[in-house]
């Protein structure tokens, strides 16, 4: 995670961002610290990325890249505003003895924000990867080669759900939160084929960033939790921790976007 020292809405690169809407820096800080403690209480161990002035979105570490064991594939950002982040992200991973495998130039892939692993019980892990809005489908093929992981490319069709992690949240070996409306006809079939027990999020729930949640064991840390969804999740044995991150939603990100899982193992065998 990266402290929100320099977080603000300084540009508009998604439909949620409006530079005229000011971020309350103190509130943002408080919300972020509340998220940190919820994650820690759930059992997560957190590593820190130093904030950088002029890179307000560095706080959204989910987009730093893809992690597989000790291999790190740096993101290639679509928008020039975020491209300078990669240098800082890569430096952190090099400092922490990761092997860096860059994507070829000319392809964009916005890290774990657009690529989340789902491992159905008894089946090898599959990297579900979104494309069209922020990532190139051709980058998926490269990731598959680089990491030796099976990839399912799904097209994202709603600009408001511009990253996969706003529309798809793997929960365990059977379940995931899924916003069907975020995918095209084919993507829906792909996800339905992959996830044995999808828990549907309605569009209005998706637009409240319910899908942008972090799972630590059987705890789900959510920016908000509609009663309907809460009942379903608790019925499935999860406990729910709500962390309001409204200041960050002003920039189009919530709990999940503020974290990057480092304990990810994608490769087969």
């Amino acid at each position: 995670m990266c402290p929100p020292d320099h977080f603000e809405v300084a540009y508009e690169i998604n439909p949620w961002m409006h530079t005229e809407v000011a971020v309350d820096g103190d509130l943002a800080r408080a919300q972020w610290e509340r998220l940190v403690s919820a994650l820690t209480e759930a059992g997560a161990v957190i590593e820190w990325l130093s904030p950088v002035r002029g890179l307000p979105d560095l706080v959204f570490t989910a987009n730093a890249g893809l992690v597989d064991g000790h291999v790190y594939v740096p993101a290639r950002f679509k928008n020039p505003e975020r491209q300078p982040e990669t240098e800082h992200d890569t430096a952190w991973f090099l400092d922490h003895q990761f092997t860096v495998k860059p994507l070829p130039e000319g392809l964009v892939l916005e890290g774990a924000g657009d690529a989340l692993p789902f491992a159905a019980r008894g089946r090898p892990p599959v990297l579900v990867a979104g494309y069209r809005i922020r990532s190139d489908v051709r980058a998926h093929a490269v990731v598959s080669r680089l990491l030796g992981v099976a990839v399912r490319s799904v097209e994202l069709v709603d600009p408001r759900l511009y990253h996969l992690d706003l529309a798809f949240c793997p929960l365990d070996a059977r379940r995931a939160l899924v916003v069907w409306a975020a995918f095209d006809h084919y993507g829906r079939k792909v996800v339905a084929d992959l996830v044995p027990e999808p828990i549907e999020l309605l569009p209005e729930e998706a637009f409240a960033f319910v899908g942008n949640s972090v799972v630590v064991g059987d705890v789900i840390i959510m920016p908000t939790c509609p009663v309907r969804v809460g009942r379903l999740l608790e019925g499935a044995g999860f406990s729910i921790e709500v962390c309001d991150v409204s200041e960050f939603i002003k920039a189009g990100g919530a709990c999940r976007c503020l974290t990057l899982a480092l304990d990810v193992r994608l490769s087969l065998g």
């Binding site: 489908v137 051709r138 998926h140 598959s144 990839v151 399912r152 490319s153 799904v154 097209e155 792909v190």
Partner: peptide, 13 residues
């Protein structure tokens, strides 16, 4: 066209 064309239904698309 190259990639995960079958499982991702890219080819039929």
């Amino acid at each position: 066209l190259e990639g995960h064309l079958i499982d991702s239904l890219i080819l039929p698309k």
